[in-house]
Design a protein around this nucleic acid. Structure first.
Lengths: 392, 392
DNA sequence: GAGCCGCACTAATGCGGTTCAGTACGAGGG
DNA sequence: CCCTCGTACTGAACCGCATTAGTGCGGCTC
C-alpha cells in the first residue's frame, strides 16, 4: 500500500468538509450548513442525520473558511509587554490566562498569546492583528497611567477589555458616591442583532470609558491591609510599590495616602516607594528603608517576589520577622508559603478575574456596551509574617 | 458627520484588500499577489509600485484568506496540561514562550497558547486544532515516559516538535556511541518543494523518532551536580525529583544512578524520590528525609520552588545551610537569589531552548526531516547553599 | 381549481487571497 | 516573414464555509 520509506510519515488523513457531509447525507452543502448552525430551513430529520454524519466524520469547521465568510476570526489576543528578563516568576499571568481560557474554550475561541519587549511593539502587534483580522478582540493587561492603547484600539475598532484598571485614570475611577457598576447599565441587546444603533437615544449613553474594563478595588484592598497593620499597632508602614507607570500602582499609592489620612497616620511615616517589581529592586528598597534612623515596622510589597526578597534581606540582617518587622505581600503564591516565616498575603482569585475579563470581552463582541465591572474583593490571609511591632 | 452617540465607537476603518491595491496601482489582483509574494511574473517596476501602494495603505494579508487558499494557518500551538492550581510559580514556561515567539514573530507566525486540565484534554485539543486547521504545527511540552501524543500527532499528520525530551524514551535516547546529532543528517530539501517523496530511497530514512525533538542533556547536567557535591565531600545525596510520569524525571533518575555508580557511591545513600513538583510535596519529602537516622547531607531539587521550600524546612528546624545540609536547585530563577542563603542552581538558557524548538518546528514545516537536536548544556551556578558536609 | 403561502431544500455568490491557464507583445532565429 | 520563446500580465477557478436568492411542492383558502 505505502512504500516502506513513507511508513514513518503517514499520509495525513484528509480533513472532512461540509461537502463530504453533504454527499454522505444526500443533501446540498447549504443544507448542511443550516443544519450544523442551528439555522431554520431544514427538517428535524435532516438536521439530525447531518449532525450524525458530521459526528462520524469528526468534522470541525475550518476556522479559516469560517473566519473568511463569517467575518469572525474566532480568536482573541493577549499581549504581554515585558522585557524577557523580568518575565515569569509571578504566577499571576498564567493563572489569569487559565481563567480566560476556561471561558473561551467553552465557546471554541482560541487565544493568541504573545510576549513582546515593550509598549510600542504591543501597539504594532495590535495593528497587525487588526489588519490581518487575526483576532476579534484583545485583552489589555498592565494598564498605564498614560496609556496609548485604548485610543489606538478604539480608533481601529478592535474590541477590547482592559484587565485590572480603569480605562482613563481619574474620570472612570470609582464614582464619587463610591458606587461602581457591577451589572449592565442597560439591558444587553439581543446578541448579534443591533441594526439601529440609534435606538435607545442619548439617554442610554452615560459617560462611559473608551473600553470595557474589569478592575479590582485596590482601595478597599489597601484598606484591609492597613486595618490589619494599624490594628496590630503599626504606625510606620512603607508600601514598596511596583512600576510607577502602571495604573494600579498609582491607584494603590493614592489609596495608601487616603487610608493613612483616614486613620490619622503621618504621611512621612506611611508612604510608598516605587520599584520595577524585580527581586533586586525590592531587596534594595528594603535595605534602604531599614538603614533609616527610624525604620518602618511594617512593609507592604506589591508582589510576592519582592516580598520574599525583602524577607530575605531581613533574615540576612538578623531582623526578626514579625518581631521587629512585619511583611505583607500583595498577591499570594506558593512563594509566600515556602518562606520561613510564611508571609501574610493579599489573596486574589486571579483565574476568576480572567474569567470575568473573558466574559466581558465576549459581551462586547456580542454587541454589548463597554462596561466597567468589578472583580471579587481580595482578602488578606494573615500568616506568620505579621504581628505587633516590637514583639519578640 | 457622525451622530453624537456614535462618537465613542468610531466606525472602524475598512481594512484594505489586494483589490484596493490593484485598483490604485492599475494592475490586476493576481499581479499584486505575485508582487507581494516575491513570485516571478511582474517587472521590477511594477513590483516596486505595488509594494509602495501596499505600504501606503497599510495592507496586511487577511490571515483567514491566506490560510484558506494557502493551506497554511500561519499559527502554531502550545498546550500546557496542568491543573490550574499547580500553575505558574515556575518561570520556565513564560521564558520558553518568549523564546519561541522571538523566532515566530520574525516570520509573522502567531502562537496559540492554551492551558488545559490534563493530557486527555490536550489530545482532544490537538484533534480539534487539526480538524479546524487552526495551527500548522504544535510544540509538545512535558513529554512523558508513556506518551500518547507523538502517536496521535503522527497519525493526524500534524507537524510537531517535542520540547525537552526524547520522543520515545529509550530507543531514541543518546546513541550508544554517545553522539547525538545536532545538525541535519541529510541536506534539507529546498524549502517547500518535495514533489516526489520517494526520491532519496530507503537509505535516507535512518532510524529516527516519530517527531522532531529538542532536548537537554540531563545526564551531563546531573554529572555536573554530582561532580560539585561529590567534590565537596558529600556521600549521602538525595534527588527530590518531579512527577514520575515525565520523561525528563525518568532521565534524571537514571542519570543519578549511573553517575553515582561511576563514582562508586552507594545506591542506598544516593537515590531519588519523586514528588508532584509542588512546594508542599517538596517540603514534605525534605522533612521525611531529614527525619531519617542518617539523613542526607545534600539535596538536589528538580525545580526552584521545591528547593526553596526545602530550604525553608531546614531553616525551620535550625539546620544550617550549607553547614549541615547542602541544597541544589535544578533551574534557576529569582527565587534562588532571594532566599538566604542564596541557592546553588543549575542555570539553563530557557528562552534559547524555546528559540531552538521554534526553529526546529519551522524546519519541519518547511519539509525537513524530524531531527533530534540538543540544547545548550546548562551550567551549575555555585552559590551559598552548597559547601562541604559537616562544616559549621 | 387558481392563487397563495410556507416549508424544505438547492443553486449561486462572496469573503480575500493564491494559482494556473491563457494572452499580448516584443525580441530573436532560421 | 513566420514561428518560437520568454516576459509581463490578466481572467478565472478555487480554498471551505455562510448566506441570499431562488425552486418545487403540498396544503389551504375562497
Amino acid at each position: 500500500m505505502t512504500a516502506p520509506g513513507e511508513a514513518a510519515r503517514p499520509r495525513p488523513a484528509r480533513r472532512p468538509t461540509i461537502k463530504d457531509i453533504a454527499r454522505r447525507a444526500g443533501v446540498s452543502e447549504s443544507a448542511v450548513s443550516f443544519a450544523l448552525n442551528d439555522r431554520p430551513g431544514v427538517s428535524q430529520d435532516t438536521r439530525a442525520r447531518v449532525r450524525r454524519v458530521a459526528e462520524e466524520l469528526g468534522w470541525q469547521a475550518n476556522s479559516a473558511a469560517r473566519a473568511l465568510s463569517g467575518e469572525r476570526a474566532g480568536a482573541l489576543g493577549l499581549v504581554l509587554a515585558r522585557p524577557a528578563r523580568t518575565l515569569g516568576v509571578e504566577s499571576f499571568f498564567l493563572q489569569l490566562v487559565s481563567g480566560i481560557q476556561e471561558v473561551l474554550s467553552a465557546r471554541n475561541i482560541a487565544l493568541l498569546f504573545q510576549v513582546v519587549e515593550d509598549l510600542d511593539a504591543e501597539c504594532a502587534l495590535y495593528r497587525r492583528w487588526w489588519a490581518e483580522r487575526r483576532v476579534d478582540g484583545v485583552l489589555v493587561v498592565d494598564p498605564r497611567t498614560e496609556d496609548p492603547r485604548p485610543q489606538l484600539l478604539a480608533s481601529l475598532g478592535l474590541p477590547a477589555v482592559v484587565v485590572g484598571g480603569t480605562a482613563t485614570p481619574e474620570r472612570d475611577a470609582p464614582a464619587p458616591d463610591g458606587r461602581t457598576e457591577s451589572a449592565p447599565k442597560t439591558a444587553a441587546p439581543a446578541p448579534g442583532t443591533a441594526p439601529h444603533p440609534a435606538a435607545p437615544g442619548p439617554a442610554a449613553t452615560p459617560p462611559h470609558p473608551l473600553l470595557a474594563t474589569v478592575w479590582a478595588d485596590d482601595a478597599k484592598a489597601m484598606a484591609r491591609i492597613l486595618d490589619h497593620l494599624h490594628g496590630l499597632g503599626h504606625r510606620r508602614i512603607v508600601h514598596i510599590a511596583g512600576l510607577p507607570g502602571l495604573a494600579h500602582t498609582a491607584r494603590r499609592i493614592r489609596s495608601l495616602r487616603t487610608e493613612a489620612a483616614l486613620r490619622g497616620l503621618d504621611h512621612r511615616h506611611v508612604r510608598s516607594v516605587t520599584t520595577d517589581y524585580s527581586d533586586a529592586e525590592g531587596a534594595e528598597a528594603t535595605r534602604r528603608l531599614l538603614d533609616a534612623a527610624k525604620p518602618p515596622t511594617a512593609l507592604v510589597y506589591d508582589n510576592d517576589v519582592m516580598a520574599v526578597a525583602g524577607a530575605s534581606v531581613a533574615a540576612g540582617r538578623g531582623i526578626p520577622v514579625p518581631g521587629a518587622l512585619s511583611i505583607v505581600a500583595w498577591d499570594d503564591s506558593a512563594l509566600c508559603r515556602v518562606t520561613h516565616p510564611r508571609l501574610t498575603a493579599l489573596v486574589r482569585d486571579t483565574p476568576g478575574f480572567g474569567r470575568l475579563a473573558a466574559h466581558e470581552l465576549l459581551a462586547v463582541l456580542d454587541g454589548g456596551p463597554p462596561r466597567t465591572v468589578q472583580g471579587e474583593l481580595p482578602h488578606l490571609e494573615a500568616r506568620e509574617s505579621t504581628g505587633p511591632p516590637g514583639a519578640p
